[in-house]
Design a protein around this nucleic acid. Structure first.
Lengths: 198, 198
DNA sequence: CCATCGCCTGAACGGTCGTTAAGCACCGGC
DNA sequence: GCCGGTGCTTAACGACCGTTCAGGCGATGG
């Protein structure tokens, strides 16, 4: 139960807080049983406390979902932009880097990826729009790279392909590992690259 | 537990029954807002009746989800087996036929596909196992075709690729149509075929 | 040894949900 | 004109959920 090794956040004098620990537990439950399928008492029990205790760390249930989804969207966007910038002018290399980045991310964070796919609509307007905005910007990195690589594609068509590639790469949460992680990564990367190249 | 539930009659009913009409409405709501995010009153209101009226057509809320998911699994399995049988001994042709079948199906029934992906775990053990069994058989058709086409693939690896292809092809519910349906079908078929061929 | 603060508990609230019960309106067949 | 069935209504129930509140307990600092 003691998982206490993680990089320190931007705030220096705070170690990995109980808040983050609880959040990770909540994400796992949300991913497994759905947002509405998990009660605050469930989350509390899984964290070793009662339900109301969670209100000392989060404003409420929705706030937990927001706290889980926002950083992921930001990480994806930042990572995507970084990969594209590293390979400016070489769209195929940029695409390969994007694929490698996304596959690694999906394999490392299957629960959060599943949450992003399934539970985003459970949020109220305001935070949902913020997350969708981050997602859209991330997709645009893919669309720009794809249209540079394949000029015959219209932007809308490239968007269809980008989402198709996300579906392909995000399929990993749906499978318990019968194949080891490196091999799965290889298979997904090769398949995604083949799917997106003309 | 009223033991006198009405089931879809084997006797051919004249018109498309009200039951099927309500079911389609419920599926749309489930897909849009999630199983737990839709109440019986919501479904009733969308169908022009009150919530309790639905109990004249279905045993309960779970029964509606089962009634929506089971036929789809059966259709997919039957369609998949048919395509494979039509092209026995020609794995590439079989794979192309499977892809065309699945893409058409996903484009024609995006809501039910989304339900299958997101809400299956909301069911109790018994019907869930039945649906998973049908899904597993469908996946096996893909795995067999893939291993025939690419003998270097182990069964588990082929399964990873099959699920990746499902993720790719099922990405269509997540996009409002900015590209017309035929073009989207072409893009998804080509991408899936490229992803699965060595 | 006491005051304080962080973290938690137990009880309780308003609300919503799935479900049941009882009864009314309509309609084709005898 | 009556009958049975179908399809619906309103009312109500028990259960569960998110949230709030008042207070307790233990470590910390003076």
């Amino acid at each position: 139960m003691t998982a206490d090794q993680q990089v320190a956040p931007a705030v220096p004098h705070r170690r990995r807080s109980r808040r983050d620990e609880i959040l990770e537990i909540a994400v796992g439950l949300f991913a497994a049983r759905g947002y509405h399928g998990v009660s605050m008492d469930d989350i509390g029990a899984a964290a070793g406390v009662t339900g109301p205790a969670l209100y000392h760390h989060f404003a409420g249930k929705e706030a937990m979902l927001v706290a889980a989804l926002i950083p992921v969207s930001e990480q994806l966007l930042a990572g995507g932009r970084e990969r594209v910038a590293e390979h400016e002018g070489r769209p195929l290399a940029a695409l390969a880097a994007l694929i490698e980045f996304h596959v690694d991310f999906a394999l490392a964070n299957p629960a959060v990826i599943a949450l992003h796919l399934h539970e985003l609509d459970r949020l109220p307007e305001e935070p949902r729009r913020q997350i969708r905005r981050l997602q859209r910007l991330y997709v645009e990195e893919w669309v720009n790279t794809l249209t540079a690589l394949r000029p015959e594609l219209a932007a809308g068509e490239a968007r269809v392909l980008a989402h198709a590639a996300f579906g392909l790469m995000n399929s990993t949460p749906f499978l318990g590992g019968e194949v080891d992680r490196d091999r799965r990564s290889d298979l997904l990367r090769a398949a995604a690259l083949a799917a997106l190249q003309g």
